[in-house]
Simulated assay, not measured.
Amino acid sequence: MKTAFAPCRTAVSISIALNPKAGIVGVITPWNLPLNQAARAIAPALVAGNVIVAKPSEITSQTTIEMARLATEVGFPNGVINIVLGTGKEVGEAIVRNPDVRKVAFTGSVGVGRAIGHIAADRIIPLTLELGGKSANIVFDDADIDTAATEAVKGFTLNAGQVCSAGTRVLVQRSVYDVFLEKMKSAVQAIVPGENLGPIITPAQFQRVQSFFKVAEGDGARLVHGGAAAEGDGFYIQPTVYADVSNDMRIAQEEIFGPVGVVIPFDTEEDAIRIANDSDYGLIGTVWSQNISRALRVADRIDAGQIFVNVWNTMSVQTPFGGYKNSGYGREKGIEAIHHYSHLKTVTVKI
């Protein structure tokens, strides 16, 4: 006896995940590192298929204009990268409010980022916010002290301290505190304004940085080096180090945005983690220790978007960059950045 089997008739569905472009992306950038700040938002937005309306700072707009000109010169169609000049209040706010703009990337202050966030929330559009930091540079007693001291100084003097990821809080284990301070002092004395240290970009920021010298004195911080404007013409600030700082002082909590580092002692690993995380910001952190298990354990517990071990700030375009807490949200650079400039769509097909 033979058995016949009827053909099986079933419905099969497949789902495909697509990443449609966001559309028009608004990019609002600050006056520090203007070409870098513009490129790291514009590049992933373009890769995702969007077009750009960018507003650079009115103080440092030329590099962004030149980037757009070069893009047109090499073949970008007109209208893909658009630069609009003006102040944040007039132009930046108009970009965020424009109904055709479906995504905004902003780099700048917490106050402005919060204001943009309110507008974006009303419109229910996504944001990438990169808002600054007060990053902790943690030095344990088994670290390579010479290297850690030299790199710590680089951490708060690069671009005259006008970097959101500056390592301005240097946390040093008490058993090596005095030795580290001497080596740090030697390293900072080798930095000369006008030679290997640039100026503060704006007059207002120049005055703001100097105002913190009085704040530090009032709080009882010990001046190790600097603490004044440099002699001569230009908006130059002496590279400055304060020691014996407690983490509740204003100079340890507020982003100064100048070449000013504060040195804070700690006793134990738990102390270091507690102090590092006692901040409204969470952008980067650095851990110096020859005990890699400890370094990685501490790195895991620091509330920051990027952590470096035995090296200071070696980020590249491949590494995602972004913060926790008041340092913002979203990520720039890396493959993760592209996801912020597209909308995930699932298409299900019955076959």
Rank of each mutant, 00 (worst) to 15 (best):
residue 2 K to N: 11
residue 8 C to H: 13
residue 15 S to G: 15
residue 17 A to Q: 14
residue 20 P to H: 09
residue 21 K to W: 01
residue 27 V to D: 08
residue 32 N to C: 09
residue 33 L to M: 11
residue 34 P to Q: 04
residue 37 Q to N: 15
residue 37 Q to E: 14
residue 38 A to R: 07
residue 38 A to S: 09
residue 45 A to S: 11
residue 47 V to L: 13
residue 47 V to K: 12
residue 49 G to T: 06
residue 51 V to S: 15
residue 57 S to I: 10
residue 59 I to G: 03
residue 61 S to M: 03
residue 63 T to Q: 13
residue 65 I to T: 10
residue 67 M to P: 02
residue 67 M to I: 15
residue 68 A to P: 00
residue 72 T to N: 15
residue 81 I to W: 01
residue 82 N to V: 07
residue 83 I to M: 08
residue 88 G to V: 04
residue 89 K to Q: 12
residue 92 G to P: 01
residue 96 V to T: 12
residue 97 R to D: 08
residue 100 D to A: 15
residue 101 V to F: 10
residue 107 T to S: 10
residue 110 V to F: 05
residue 111 G to Y: 01
residue 111 G to L: 05
residue 112 V to G: 01
residue 121 A to V: 08
residue 122 D to P: 01
residue 124 I to V: 14
residue 126 P to M: 09
residue 126 P to I: 08
residue 127 L to T: 06
residue 128 T to N: 12
residue 132 G to P: 02
residue 132 G to L: 11
residue 141 D to H: 06
residue 142 D to G: 01
residue 142 D to S: 04
residue 142 D to R: 03
residue 146 D to A: 15
residue 147 T to D: 07
residue 148 A to E: 00
residue 150 T to G: 04
residue 154 K to L: 13
residue 154 K to F: 09
residue 155 G to F: 00
residue 156 F to R: 06
residue 159 N to R: 13
residue 160 A to Q: 11
residue 167 G to S: 11
residue 174 R to T: 08
residue 179 V to T: 12
residue 180 F to T: 01
residue 186 S to D: 14
residue 187 A to G: 04
residue 187 A to T: 05
residue 187 A to F: 01
residue 188 V to C: 12
residue 197 L to W: 00
residue 200 I to L: 14
residue 201 I to H: 05
residue 202 T to Q: 13
residue 204 A to E: 15
residue 206 F to W: 08
residue 207 Q to I: 08
residue 207 Q to C: 01
residue 207 Q to W: 04
residue 213 F to H: 07
residue 214 K to C: 03
residue 214 K to M: 05
residue 219 D to T: 11
residue 223 L to R: 07
residue 224 V to T: 10
residue 225 H to I: 06
residue 228 A to I: 04
residue 229 A to M: 09
residue 229 A to T: 03
residue 230 A to M: 07
residue 234 G to Y: 05
residue 235 F to G: 02
residue 236 Y to M: 08
residue 238 Q to L: 10
residue 240 T to V: 09
residue 242 Y to S: 06
residue 252 A to M: 08
residue 252 A to T: 05
residue 254 E to Q: 11
residue 254 E to M: 06
residue 255 E to G: 06
residue 255 E to F: 02
residue 255 E to N: 09
residue 257 F to G: 01
residue 257 F to Q: 03
residue 259 P to W: 05
residue 262 V to L: 04
residue 266 F to I: 05
residue 267 D to F: 04
residue 268 T to E: 05
residue 270 E to T: 09
residue 271 D to S: 05
residue 274 R to A: 12
residue 275 I to V: 11
residue 282 G to Y: 03
residue 284 I to N: 08
residue 287 V to F: 02
residue 288 W to C: 02
residue 290 Q to C: 05
residue 290 Q to T: 14
residue 292 I to A: 05
residue 296 L to P: 00
residue 303 D to N: 15
residue 307 I to M: 11
residue 308 F to Q: 03
residue 318 Q to R: 15
residue 319 T to D: 14
residue 319 T to E: 11
residue 328 G to W: 04
residue 328 G to P: 04
residue 331 R to P: 00
residue 332 E to Q: 12
residue 333 K to R: 12
residue 334 G to T: 04
residue 335 I to S: 15
residue 335 I to R: 13
residue 339 H to L: 11
residue 341 Y to H: 11
residue 344 L to Y: 01
residue 346 T to H: 09
